[in-house]
Design a protein around this nucleic acid. Structure first.
Ligand SMILES: [Mn+2]
Ligand SMILES: [Mn+2]
Ligand SMILES: [Mn+2]
Ligand SMILES: [Mn+2]
Lengths: 244, 244
DNA sequence: GAGTCGAATTAGGTTAACCTAAACCAGCTG
DNA sequence: CAGCTGGTTTAGGTTAACCTAATTCGACTC
């Protein structure tokens, strides 16, 4: 083998490794996983919207992922993750959430600007790095926004919580999770005391997606429906299912 | 503006940002910087070899980088970094070395497997993350292999050291830096006690790139010329310029 | 069962970043 | 100064990942 053939061989070998699940593909799988959790098969448009791509681009990527056995895809029918696809999605989700937790836990980041950083690092970090980060902060079970962190083995809590927007007045709830992607939203939520673990009482709800009045730590505050939808909660004590 | 036009605008805005200096481009600039340090203009073949790409590919990337004002390029003449190119190279070099230092300093990595990790993370980490990492480990001046870390402002120590392979017998030297990219080499160097800060006496040198016999911490050991070339050293006390 | 409409796909195009094979050129060698 | 040669570039090709515009499809309405 000549020297330049050796180099060529080395390049080919290096490519072999990952190849199929590229960075962009990881983001698609993650998005599809989350859409699927929310409601059945993920539609082309939903994926496009979540990732800010044109629908035509999504169709293209979907085809490729399906060819590689990561998605079950029938034209005009939306997509579902296969076992392999789900595994890959959870792997990326774990990375993302471990990174967010680590940045907040040990590097002094605040919860409103870790998402963007994690969105890039999740594709570059090795398994080893993620495991070391997780170990360094005590193997957390949720990320700074309350989202569950999949284990190394791909096990994750998929409990569905309802949001503040789904509740009627009179409920007492514990915040379990908030949307993680909009820094301004997160700063505002922090400023009014909404974060995982906090207890909230719903005082009033105006109809037609009107504002919702809450009591948080003895403070009274009204928030709009879109914001309320970003806050996932768990019923406390005697209260049960949402009132409609 | 319609909703879909808004999305399109958002995509364009997002692209505007970096665009020009992509991940691969950062690796090219880094490689060119280091080749230039070693000796004048960087040749297409040298760059190709260092990055394990075909020379034709290098020509292509060089053209693009030159068009964007990062390289001074004349066909068949090799390339030189412009001020902008140098700045970008040092930015990436800083990232790389801060990351290596951080991984070793706080996550329990050993020095032999941080290079590969840093090679990917350097393209994904934000300026803020790098600065926080550097602060967390006390703003180190060199990375775990002894390579100088450029400051945030792009200032770096460019002192040229000679390697063990350049020395004649009788010299007493301090190791300042070792090659950072081959894990096996690094493990071996560590096993025989060669790492930055250690003092070495050169006992004997065989001609024709033969082995070099050293005394390290009162241990006697011979190493081959290629390995010796990876160890950069500083003269101690009375000794001066290399003996040829 | 034809019409309609939004969602999805197809068609066709772009850019970055690689590749191999073929030409090309600069500088030395006889 | 003609010829060689190794380094370099050009020519032509591939793949991933996006785009817009045009077409097609499914499902629901009249
Ligand atoms: Mn996030
Ligand atoms: Mn991402
Ligand atoms: Mn390195
Ligand atoms: Mn790199």
């Amino acid at each position: 083998m000549t020297k330049s053939e050796q180099q060529t061989a080395k390049r080919d070998a290096a490519k072999e490794q990952e190849s199929v699940i590229t960075g962009p593909a990881e983001d698609y799988l993650k998005a599809i996983y989350e859409l699927e959790l929310a409601g059945g098969a993920a539609s082309t448009n939903d994926i496009a919207q979540r990732l800010s791509f044109a629908p035509a681009s999504v169709t293209g990527m979907i085809r490729r992922l399906a060819e590689h056995g990561l998605l079950a895809y029938e034209r005009y029918r939306g997509v579902t993750l296969t076992a392999a696809g789900r595994k890959a999605a959870l792997r990326t989700l774990r990375r993302h959430r471990v990174i967010e937790s680590y940045l907040v836990g040990t590097l002094g980041y605040r919860w409103d600007n870790v998402h963007e950083e994690a969105e890039r690092l999740e594709h570059a970090a090795s398994e080893e790095l993620i495991d070391r980060m997780a170990a360094a902060i005590g193997e957390p079970v949720v990320d700074p926004h309350g989202a569950p962190i999949p284990t190394r083995e791909g096990v994750v809590d998929e409990t569905q919580y309802c949001s503040l927007a789904d509740l009627g007045p009179g409920h007492r709830v514990a915040v379990v999770r908030v949307g993680d992607d909009d820094p301004e939203v997160l700063r505002y939520l922090a400023s009014i005391g909404i974060m995982p673990g906090v207890t909230i009482a719903v005082l009033a709800c105006e109809p037609f997606d009107g504002p919702i009045t809450l009591s948080i730590e003895n403070e009274r505050i009204s928030i709009g429906a879109p914001l309320a939808a970003q806050v996932l909660v768990d019923m406390i004590g005697g209260s049960e299912a949402p009132s409609h």
